[in-house]
Simulated assay, not measured.
Amino acid sequence: MRKTTRYPIQGANSLWQIYKTVSFWKVFKNVIVILIARYTPFMSWKVWMYRKFLKMKVGDHTAFAFMVMPDIMFPEKINVGKNTIIGYHTTILAHEYLIDEYRVGEVRIGDEVMIGANSTILPGVEIGDRATVSAGTLVNRNVPPGSFVGGNPMQVIYTKEEMEKRRNHDRLTDPLNK
């Protein structure tokens, strides 16, 4: 279940009223920072920009691949653990604007998580430590630690226990380990 806070609105749809919910200047600054970071080839620079200018919480040795798109309106609600990889062209949302309301929720991505390319993470989701998200996945609910998930809608492909079994089997059958 996603954890979001709902804010009802009156009149035109919530996106039409965007600057009643977040400052224009905050969005403007965030767009500039995110555009620069998306094309920056140096992981340490990206992480520094996200921490310094967007107030994102990002752990050490976390890598944001080329063209990752963090939330423009509420990037400070994104928390990524250490030694995590966010794949190419992934979108991380901390908000959603709907017709009659908008919702905001923290996104928590654990330590040593692997998120495949072209994934979308919705607001209010928690991805547990050492989880793997397959490329092209819509992460629309929490991901258990150590599991392997994928698809649209997202499904658990392997649980933590099944993943550990597979890793042990691969270690035993890998000719390079002998």
Rank of each mutant, 00 (worst) to 15 (best):
G116A: 05
M73Y: 12
Y50D: 06
N30Y: 04
V80N: 00
P75C: 13
E126K: 09
T40R: 03
S44V: 14
P75F: 08
T40D: 15
I99V: 13
G105C: 01
I121E: 04
V125F: 04
D111I: 03
H61A: 12
E112S: 12
T84H: 04
G136V: 11
P41G: 05
G87F: 02
V125C: 06
V133L: 13
G110I: 12
Y102E: 07
Y97R: 09
A63S: 15
N152C: 15
K52F: 09
F148R: 08
V149N: 00
D129Q: 09
E76S: 14
G136P: 02
T84V: 03
I92S: 07
L35D: 15
K57A: 14
S134C: 14
T91D: 12
A131P: 10
R51Q: 14
S147K: 05
I109D: 02
K55D: 03
N140K: 08
I99D: 15
A117D: 03
A135E: 13
P70G: 08
V133T: 12
T62K: 07
V149W: 07
I99R: 15
I115F: 09
T137A: 08
G81N: 01
M56Q: 04
I115D: 04
M73L: 09
P153D: 07
D100R: 08
K77Y: 14
I92C: 01
V104A: 03
P41F: 09
T90R: 11
F53S: 08
P70Q: 11
I115A: 09
V149S: 04
K29G: 00
Q155P: 10
R141A: 11
V107Q: 01
F53H: 12
I92T: 02
I72V: 15
I34T: 04
G81E: 01
G110P: 10
W45R: 15
A94R: 01
M154L: 07
T132R: 15
P70K: 07
N79L: 08
F66C: 10
V133K: 11
T62L: 02
V33Y: 08
P145F: 03
K26Q: 10
P123L: 04
E96C: 09
S44M: 14
R103K: 08
V149H: 01
L122S: 04
M69L: 15
W25A: 06
I127T: 04
T120I: 13
V80S: 01
T62E: 07
K26D: 02
